Amino acid sequence: MNYRFITIEGNIGAGKTTLAKILSERLNARLVLEGFEDNPFLPKFYKQPEQYAFPLELFFMAERFRQLKEMLSGPDLFQSITVSDYLFVKCLLFSKVTLQEEEYKLYQRIFDIIHQQLIFPDILIYLHAPVHVLQANIKKRDRAYEQKIPDEYLLQIQETYLSYMQQHNMKILFVDASNADFLSNESHVQTILEALEKEYDIGKHYLALPE
């Protein structure tokens, strides 16, 4: 495989972590998972977003940077495969939706300073699903603080991701995850694994999962 650093992204409830865990097992890869449950501001944010958005996003950025920086310091970075369930630029994409204008400008200045120290993934797997599917997945996993996420917020996040991918040159596997079931449907996992065996040009490459 030509891809040593694989990142999986998508909206809340798209299945990023599930797929990352499965791929890491199948590829015998190092796994980097976002520790979202460690963020003490997350439950507070969903109750009072304007008050807690800035500390929420700062905490996420600091933890993501620390985690990825530790990964980069490993001696076998280019000898092994690494699978991550987040892209560091996620910090900027979410903060663009959650922060007020002046807060975002400050946040972006901090982000611009530190993100240059991190390497970019070799390929991005983006899981795209409609909002009603995301909401169903969110309800199914039953995290109390997520149960009242409005559709409008998920739509904003989705549009921000799509805009980012249109504006940046990278190798992207754009997966229609409307019917994704990586835990129970082996053909869905195999479709992803087979796709990763191919070499792609820079740009967006669409991938449909079997019915």
Rank of each mutant, 00 (worst) to 15 (best):
H132E: 14
L77G: 04
K96F: 04
F120K: 14
K139Y: 12
H115P: 01
K140E: 11
I119L: 13
E103H: 11
C91Q: 05
L77R: 01
D122G: 11
I125G: 07
Y86W: 05
S84A: 15
P130V: 02
C91P: 04
L134T: 00
I110V: 14
Q79W: 04
V83F: 07
V97K: 03
Q116N: 09
T98Y: 08
Y126S: 07
A129S: 14
D122W: 07
N137V: 02
D76C: 13
V97S: 02
N137F: 00
L124E: 06
V83P: 06
A136R: 15
D122M: 10
K139H: 15
T82L: 07
L134Q: 01
D112V: 02
K105S: 13
D85C: 11
Q108C: 12
A136E: 15
Q79D: 15
S84H: 03
F120R: 13
L93I: 10
F94W: 06
L106P: 00
D122H: 13
L127Q: 07
H132A: 12
Q100P: 01
H128F: 04
V131M: 05
I119N: 06
Y86R: 10
C91K: 02
K105P: 01
S95R: 04
K90W: 10
D85E: 10
D76V: 12
V83H: 00
F111M: 05
E102A: 15
A136H: 15
K139D: 11
P121R: 10
T82G: 13
F78S: 12
V133I: 13
L124A: 07
L99F: 04
H132T: 13
L118K: 08
L93T: 03
H115L: 01
Q135D: 05
I123Y: 03
T98S: 07
Y86N: 10
I81W: 00
A129M: 10
D76E: 14
K96T: 03
L77W: 00
N137W: 00
L106W: 00
L87T: 05
Y86E: 08
N137I: 01
L106G: 01
V131E: 02
Y107V: 09
I114Y: 11
I81P: 06
K90V: 05
H128Y: 03
L127V: 07
V97Y: 04
D85I: 10
L93R: 05
V83M: 09
V97N: 02
L92P: 03
L118P: 12
L93A: 06
D122T: 08
S95P: 05
V97C: 04
L87F: 14
D122I: 08
I125V: 15
I110R: 01
Y107D: 10
S80Y: 00
E102R: 10
L87C: 06
K90S: 14
Q79I: 05
I123G: 09
P130M: 01
Q100A: 12
A129I: 09
S80P: 00
L92E: 11
D85Q: 10
Q108S: 14
Q135W: 01
E101Y: 05
A136C: 06
V133L: 00
R109H: 08
V83Y: 00
Q117Y: 14
Q100M: 07
V89G: 01
I81E: 02
Q117V: 06
T82V: 15
D85L: 14
F111P: 09
L127A: 11
F88S: 06
I81F: 03
Q100G: 04
F120H: 13
Q116Y: 05
L127S: 08
